[in-house]
Nucleic acid binder design. Structure first.
Lengths: 265, 265
DNA sequence: TATTATTGTAACAAATTGAGACAATAAAGA
DNA sequence: TCTTTATTGTCTCAATTTGTTACAATAATA
C-alpha cells in the first residue's frame, strides 16, 4: 500500500513537528522584556575570538543570549546559558553594560527566527516585545570547549574579533563595548589567567595581551613588568623540540590578596 | 452654618485624598520588573555628597529611582527622573551596573511605602514583584540645585558619602559600587568637570580629587600633572580678599579631542 | 614697610618605562 | 664533537614620569 520510504517520511514529519511545535517560553517562567547577551572570549594562541551562533535558515548571526527566570538571578541565568553552550561551569564572568534603547525592539528578527524554526507566533506575544538586555563577557579556555548549538541555531562557531560576520540588531556594538571593557580591565583583572591553560609560557601570555590590546608589546619590558607583579609561579622548562633555549612554564598564583579570584562576577 | 475654617478643612481633606488616591502606576505605561536607581553626586567644596530621599512616615531612606516607560529608553527614564528631582537638564550620567539578584525582591518595603502614603495595594500587584535595577551615577554642580522631593518622599537631602543614613534594601551596596566606578573613572573621564562650577581654582579641583579618592594629594605633583594634560584654560586671578597671593581661575577645555564631552552616557 | 598665608613653579631625587644588547641554551646540521 | 640557529632570560643605560622639597611672587594686613 505505502512504501517504506513514505512511512519513514511520515514518521520524520511527525517527529519534527513534535520537536518544533514544543511550547514557546512563557512569561510564567521568564521575566518579560528582559534578556541577556554574552560575549564569550577565547584565545587560540594567536587571535582573540568570540562565539557567534547562526540561526537555522535565516542567515542571522547573533551573540548567545537568553532570558531570565522569575526565581533566578541575572548572573545565574547567564551561567546557565554558558553551561548549556560550553559545558563549562565556573566560568569567569563580568557584567559590563545594560542595553536599554527603544530601538532594540526589532520584532521582525525574532519572528523570522521563530518561524524559520517552525514555531507559530501570534502578534502580541511577549517575545516580539521590546527587550532590555544585560550584557556580560566571559573568558574561557579555548581548548577545553566544544561549543554546542542550541535548539534554534544551526551552528555556534569561533570568530576572530576583527572579522566577525554581520551581526543582527545591535550585537556589533555590544561586542565593541565588551572589547573596550576587556581592555580596560586587562591590567587590573588578570585577564590572562582565564584565557590560558593552567601552565603557559611568557610568550603565550604576551600574545594574549597583544591580542586584547591589538598592538605589539616589547618583550623585555613586558617580562619585567609581569614578573614584577609577583603573580606568577615559575615551573619547569618546556622542551618543545625546537632549536633554541627552552622557555619556563608559569602558572598564576591563586588567591593573591586583593586581586581577583576567577569565576566571580 | 459652617465656619470658614471648617470649609477649608474639608477642602484640604478632599484635595489630599485626591492627591493620594491617584492611580498607582501600571504596567500599561511601565515595563514590569525593571527599575533604575541613581546615585547623584555633588561636591560642596569639601565633601563628596549624594542625594538620599526619605519616604513619608516610614523612616526608610533610599536612592532616587523610578520605572521605565514602555516607549522610553532606560537612559531617558533616568534623565526624566533627574530632571524632576533637580530641575537640571543635560546632566553627566554614567551607567555602572545592573543589580539582578533574586534577593532584591522585598515586597514589604514597597508595601510599607505605598501604604504610608495612603495607597491601597493588593497582593499580586506588579509593584510588589521582583525588580531588576539598572544603576547610574550622575555628577552635578552642587550649587545649581535645589532638590525637590517627589510624591512619596518627605525630603531629599545631601549626605556625605561616608556618613549615610541606613539605606533600604541593597542601596548601600549600590552606592559603594558607584563610588568605586567613580574612582576608576576619575582620571579618564574628567570627573572634576562635572562637579565644579565653570570657573574654579586649582585648589578646588584638587579638593574634588581628594574627596573622590578619599586621600590627600601632593599639591605640586597634582598641579604639574593636571596642567600637563592640557585640558585647562587659565583665566584671570581670583581676588578673595585674603592676605596672600591670589590663585588663577581655570575652566575646562570643551570638546578636547578624544576626551569626553559632558552629559553623555 | 614688614608680616602672613598661599600660590606658581623650579630643582633634584627616586621610581618607572623604553630600547637595545648580550650571554645562555635546546636542537639541528656539519 | 663543534657550529649554527632561533629564542629566551636578564642586564644596562637612556628617557620619562613621579615624589619631595624649596623658593620666589604676591594680596591683604598690621
Amino acid at each position: 500500500m505505502f512504501s517504506l520510504n513514505f512511512i519513514i517520511y511520515l514518521i520524520k514529519i511527525i517527529f519534527l513537528r513534535n520537536k518544533n511545535r514544543r511550547e514557546l517560553p512563557s512569561t510564567e517562567t521568564y521575566i518579560p522584556n528582559l534578556a541577556y547577551d554574552s560575549v564569550i572570549f577565547g584565545f587560540n594562541g594567536e587571535q582573540l575570538r568570540i562565539l557567534i551562533l547562526e540561526y537555522h535558515n535565516t542567515g542571522l548571526f547573533a551573540l548567545p543570549g537568553g532570558f531570565v527566570k522569575r526565581n533566578e538571578s541575572v548572573d545565574d541565568a547567564v551561567k546557565r546559558g554558558l553551561y548549556e553552550r560550553t559545558g563549562l561551569d565556573n566560568i569567569y564572568l563580568e557584567q559590563f553594560h545594560t542595553f536599554g534603547d527603544v530601538s532594540r525592539m526589532v520584532p521582525e528578527a525574532m519572528q523570522t527566527i521563530l518561524e524559520a524554526n517552525g514555531y507559530e507566533i501570534e502578534a502580541g506575544n511577549w517575545l516580539l516585545d521590546r527587550f532590555i538586555s544585560v550584557a556580560y563577557y566571559a573568558l574561557i579556555n579555548y581548548d577545553e570547549v566544544t561549543p554546542v548549538p542550541d535548539q534554534l541555531s544551526d551552528s555556534i562557531n569561533w570568530y576572530a574579533v576583527d572579522t566577525l560576520p554581520p551581526l543582527m540588531m545591535d550585537h556589533q556594538q555590544i561586542v565593541e563595548k565588551a572589547l573596550q571593557n576587556l581592555r580596560d580591565n586587562l591590567e587590573t583583572k588578570l585577564v590572562g589567567m582565564n584565557l590560558l591553560p593552567p601552565l603557559f609560557t611568557m610568550k603565550q601570555l604576551q600574545k594574549v595581551y597583544e591580542a586584547v590590546l591589538g598592538e605589539k608589546l616589547r618583550r623585555s619590558s613586558f617580562q619585567r613588568k609581569i614578573l614584577g607583579m609577583d603573580i606568577l609561579i615559575r615551573h619547569d622548562k618546556l622542551f618543545m623540540g625546537k632549536a633554541h633555549k627552552a622557555p619556563y612554564l608559569y602558572s598564576f598564583v591563586k588567591n593573591k590578596a586583593g586581586i581577583l579570584n576567577p569565576a566571580q562576577t
